[in-house]
Amino acid sequence: MMLLDGKVVLVTGASAGIGRAAAIGAARHGADVAINFARDQAGADDVVAAIEALGRRAIAVQGDVADPETARDFIAKAVDAFGRTDVFVNNAGICPFHAFLDMPVETFERTMRVNLHGAYFMVQAAANQMVQQGDGGAIVAVSSISALVGGEFQTHYTPTKAGVHSLMQSAAIALGRHGIRCNSVLPGTILTDINKDDLADADKRARMAARVPLGRLGEPDDLAGPIIFLASDLARYVTGAALLVDGGAFVNLQ
């Protein structure tokens, strides 16, 4: 079943990790895809090539999501290329692990600007395009299990992911009258560039995997299916929801 056949899907932070998996997964389900990336030109080119190899169209647009102008530019270039925006996946995010008591102001502020401010302005720009089109749409934001639990070295990161989760709840109310659905996925520990240094310790990695009822840490492709489901008409009456994709980690915390 081609769940996104003929749709145009936009994904931020898609040169690697979860964004890459979501972009290529959308193409496998029949979508043309525009990706945003910050610096990794080679990774972005590889994603575009993978999508085109599936017989779908793709473009890559470079830009820092912390700059509100990037949102307007990304949407405009996607519409120029494909004519519209049907699905928007807000994925771009950073997590420079750091202790709380001596958190540098610039680290805190940069994390906020990328993860939360970036999500706000990207979602707003995508929503305005969907409203202009007049036939609804779907927005999926990548939040985190960190929206629900704390992290000693993530005091700057966890509030941003709680904010993204909350943004989807409020946007669902604001945009429901326009037929735009807004949902979030909450990944557990996924093996991506964002945590490769933190999980370089084999013992720590094994301990974290042991806490997961399904017995392993997540991979980016584990998020592709849930994101595509929420973007598709299978979820046509789902909005304001948050879907944990964590192998059962959250329910095993007691």
Rank of each mutant, 00 (worst) to 15 (best):
D198T: 15
R211W: 09
P159K: 12
A141Q: 02
I227H: 04
D198A: 13
S170L: 07
D198N: 13
I194W: 04
H165Q: 14
A162L: 08
R205L: 10
P187I: 03
D221F: 04
V164Y: 06
L243Y: 11
A210N: 14
L214D: 01
I180L: 03
L199S: 03
V140L: 08
G176I: 09
H165K: 15
D246I: 09
V212D: 08
S166T: 15
V185Y: 03
V140K: 01
S170D: 06
V245F: 02
K196V: 14
D198E: 13
A231K: 00
I194Q: 01
F229E: 04
P187N: 00
R211F: 00
H156M: 15
G247P: 09
F229Y: 15
G176D: 12
I190V: 15
G218H: 04
V185M: 01
A210M: 10
A210C: 11
D201R: 05
R181V: 04
D233K: 08
A242F: 00
T155P: 04
L223S: 00
P220D: 11
A206T: 11
A171S: 13
M208H: 12
A206E: 14
N252P: 08
D246S: 12
V245K: 09
I180S: 06
V245H: 07
D221N: 14
R181E: 00
R216S: 11
L230K: 06
